[in-house]
Every structure is written in C-alpha cells, then in structure tokens.
C-alpha cells in the first residue's frame, strides 16, 4: 500500500465517531490503520467517540458512523451527529444498507418481542423507558438523515478507511476503487 502523506489542513479537524446497530468491526478496522494513527492524530482531534469516551459531541468537521439504525436511540445519536458535523460519513455495510441487522426486516418486530419475552421467558415484554424502542425495520443511515459520504465494506479495510479519510481531510473528492472498494 502506497503511503500517501495527506496535505495537512490549516487547523486540526474535529472528528466524531459513533457505532449504532453494528458490531464495532468498523471501528476495529479503523484502528487497523495502525501506525498511520500517528499521522492521523497530527491532522485531527477526536470529539465524541468510543475511542475518547466523550458521550455527546460538539461542533465537528467530520462525523463517522458505523452501523444501521435499528432503534429510537440510534436515531437520536444520528440526529446529534448530523446537527454537529459538517459532513457525515456512513462507515461500513450496516451504515450503508442496513447490513446483517437488516436481515430481521422480514420479521414482524412485535412478534419477535412477544416470542422472546412472553412465549419463551414467560415474562412481559419490558416497558422500561430506559430501553430504546425498536424500529419496525433496520435502516441505513441515509434513509434517516442526509449522509455525505459512504465507505462500504464489512468492514472496510484499514487501507480503504485511511485512503478515504485522507482524501477528505486533504480536500480531495474521496474515491474508492478496486481493490479497496469492497462490499464484503
């Protein structure tokens, strides 16, 4: 992999990341950029992110979101990032088309809850307001808010993420081509 040194921006860009209905695999892959993390840290600083453990985000340049939207909480997180980030990047298969979680979409969510809690456990379906309510279908991010960029892949490789982000940070139109463009 050719190591492209990104053009540094005039100031460090603020980046937020979040994981919705996903497996954190995309975040792990993000960390797979390995030593390039050191390059990245010269260019950006992290706001809300599982990496920083900051719970809510302030104004950011780039928001990176992994996972699809499966419940009300996901929607709120997505709204927060959309409201605070200049550009939003959908990272990975679930964010892009719902991914594996969306394979529940042919099932009736009411029947799922009843089956799991009432029929099997003999308990009531929990009504605790702390628990986010499930949407009837798992959706990709762009069906809920405006998304500016997409990085498909399950997960996208560290190289693909690095290429895409450095394009973005350097102000180039980000592009993914063979062999970095992958849906699997």
């Amino acid at each position: 992999m050719r190591h492209v040194a990104p053009t540094p921006p005039r100031r460090k860009l603020r980046v937020a990341t979040a994981s919705l209905a996903g497996c954190f695999g995309c975040h792990m892959s993000f960390l797979d950029i390995d030593e390039r993390l050191l390059d990245l840290i010269d260019l950006v600083e992290f706001d809300r992110s599982p990496i920083t453990d900051i719970k809510h985000c302030g104004p950011c340049d780039i928001g990176i979101i992994e996972g699809g939207v499966c419940n009300a909480e996901n929607v709120h997180v997505l709204w927060e990032l959309r409201a605070n980030c200049k550009v939003l990047v959908a990272l990975g298969a679930c964010a892009v088309n719902g991914g594996l979680p969306a394979q529940r979409n042919h099932l009736d969510v009411g029947r799922c809850l009843t089956r799991v809690y009432r029929d099997r456990a003999g308990a009531a379906v929990p009504d605790d307001p702390e628990l986010p309510l499930l949407l009837d279908k798992v959706r990709p991010l762009n069906e809920v808010v405006r998304i500016d960029f997409f990085i498909p892949g399950c997960p996208p490789s560290g190289d693909a993420i690095w290429k895409y982000l450095t394009d973005l940070i350097s102000g180039r139109m980000p592009r993914l081509e063979h062999p970095m463009l992958h849906f699997d």
Binding site: V96, N97, P140, N142, I147, P152, R175, L176, L181, D184
Partner: peptide
Amino acid sequence: FCPGCEKSGNCRLQALAYDLEMLNP
C-alpha cells in the same frame, strides 16, 4: 447483503458495482 453471501467476490452484480464505483444503494 454481500457479507453473508457465498457468492461475494464471484458475483457479477457486486463486481459491476465495484467497477462503476457504486458506493451505496
């Protein structure tokens, strides 16, 4: 859902999407 499909990598639909740089549906 390509990640769960045995055809992934041999699939012409997917391959064309790669070739035409389709980043999302």
